[in-house]
């Protein structure tokens, strides 16, 4: 098997995650889809690391994880406060961007 297949898998997961972000209304599920996209990227980075024979890719993936952890903390906090004020976790309910 050619290790390039890992990259195809990563692309597929990324696309599924992105589509999920667009389709789902529940902010928590949207957020999970974002995590899925991040993980797909990590997979690609790890595959690249193997391809190039050095550890830089893994380092980047490691940083991605750290940032994702921070993001999850803040994002979930936002969802909780949003739910508190609007009694809804739907992203469509927060449609104040419309004039």
């Amino acid at each position: 098997m050619n290790p390039v297949n890992y990259l195809y898998l990563a692309a597929l997961l990324f696309t599924i995650g992105a589509t999920g972000v667009l389709i789902r209304r529940n902010a928590i599920v949207v957020f999970m889809c974002v995590e899925l996209m991040l993980n797909a990227c990590n997979l690609a980075l790890v595959a690249f690391s193997r391809m190039h024979g050095n550890l830089d890719g893994q380092i980047i993936a490691f940083f991605t994880m750290v940032v994702a952890a921070a993001e999850v903390v803040v994002g979930l906090a936002i969802i909780v406060s949003l739910f508190r004020s609007r009694h809804s976790a739907s992203v469509d309910d927060a449609s104040l961007m419309k004039l």
């Binding site: 972000v21 667009l22 209304r25 992203v91 469509d92 927060a94 449609s95 961007m97 419309k98 004039l99």
Partner: peptide, 10 residues
């Protein structure tokens, strides 16, 4: 510009 974040994301 319907105000829905998902539309903008699309």
């Amino acid at each position: 510009q319907n105000g829905y974040a998902r539309s903008y994301a699309v």
